[in-house]
Write a protein that binds this DNA or RNA. Structure first.
Lengths: 218, 218
DNA sequence: CTCACAATCCCCCAAACGTGTGCATTTTTG
DNA sequence: CAAAAATGCACACGTTTGGGGGATTGTGAG
């Protein structure tokens, strides 16, 4: 919408809140409005209300709680993001359960703070998320980073495959049949089969499915 | 940051550097030693040297460049982490290429800063990584968070499967044959086949491999 | 120059798979 | 309750796959 910003506030960042506990919500609004740089233009206590009002408010940033009375904050993020992919949403929640964190990020949240974050850091995080960053509490960031580490330790048996064999395997993993692989690579079905035999040997598997599973797990 | 209380702990955080450019390395050492809280106990120009010396130094935190003359900083991280899983390593590099970021994190890095990070923030990041956080430059954090987002949108077609069908599919995804699935579930091969037929319909696939791929993608 | 190995191709055969058609029990659900 | 879905089973047919033999070329290490 047309935001006829006046001269005195040329660059204030607009924020909308979604939080069911009145005290917290009002505290946040006061905090945010205490900075010239920010303006709290929305305050919602339910997910449904947020879904209805936020499209009208078009805030720069949404501060979203996870535990809402109706739908979860995660679902709320998912729907808002589906409609407005450029909307920046920061989760602000009590818990740091790993499942919730990953689901919230997968739903499209751009930041994730725990509620005990000091006010100053929260403001700094709002600034950051608006600038294209992804502020996270220390523990959250570590969880996220660790998730990359932990998904590697299973030794990669596909490492011994030749480039050609990997190519064949990648097509196999797309569900193509021998004939189809042969056609896309301009080789004969027999060649595909020879490669597959060696691939199975190297991966210690005896069926295409087992091979694909190993391939997708790396 | 308000940690500058009177009862300052006598134990300082030890840091070791791995960086091939002399000026930068020395600048970093000076910066770090400028704080009572930190002590730079190692300074290495190559990955090989780092691999050899760091085990002796046993620093609290390693600051690692990616572009090294011999092996890459990523490989260096991988090997150090394999030997000393509790070692905290922070990447400090010029580039923010997504491939390098993800590979570094997968290798076990706990933080990732770009070199243009102001000195004060670098020191703060060292503090944070030592406290169990994962400091990242703004853009890096956003890339990492986005990687979760882009991973989810594919709607889950397996949702319409009945419990029994999911059970069958899960066994199929382990690479079991019809007969093996039939035996473990105490049903006939024909029943397995009729389930599979319905699963294929629901998932819009026409082979076990395609079905397994869809199954593993959720 | 051997020797190994990747990459290509061929044949045979039996087992496994995908699909069509049909039907009998439960269980779920409108 | 009656309809709909889920679960179980069977037979038939053609296709695909996995495993067993080979063979030929090009390339690169020793």
């Amino acid at each position: 919408m047309v935001r006829t910003s006046k001269k005195k506030k040329p660059v204030s960042i607009t924020v909308s809140l979604v939080e069911d506990i009145d005290d917290i919500r009002e505290g946040l609004a006061d905090l945010i409005n205490g900075y010239d740089e920010f303006r709290c233009i929305g305050s919602h206590r339910t997910g449904a209300e947020a879904l209805r009002e936020i499209p009208r408010e078009k805030p720069d940033v949404v501060l979203m709680d996870i535990n809402l009375p109706d739908l979860s904050g995660i679902e709320c993020v998912r729907r808002l993001k589906a409609e407005y992919p450029d909307l920046q949403i920061m989760m602000l929640t009590m818990y740091e359960d790993s499942e919730q964190v990953f689901q919230a990020l997968a739903a499209g949240a751009s930041g994730y703070l725990v509620k005990r974050t000091p006010p100053g850091q929260l403001i700094e995080a709002l600034r950051e998320v608006h600038q294209g960053g992804s502020p996270m509490s220390m523990q959250i960031a570590r969880m996220v980073v660790d998730s990359f580490h932990h998904m590697g330790p299973a030794r990669d048996e596909t490492a011994n495959l030749t480039p050609r064999e990997e190519e064949i395997l990648s097509h196999l993993a797309k569900g193509l049949r021998y004939k189809e692989i042969a056609d896309t690579l301009f080789i004969s079905v027999e060649t595909v089969r020879s490669h597959l035999r060696r691939i199975y040997e190297k991966l210690h598997v005896r069926s295409r499915t087992e091979a694909v599973v190993k391939y997708l797990r790396k």
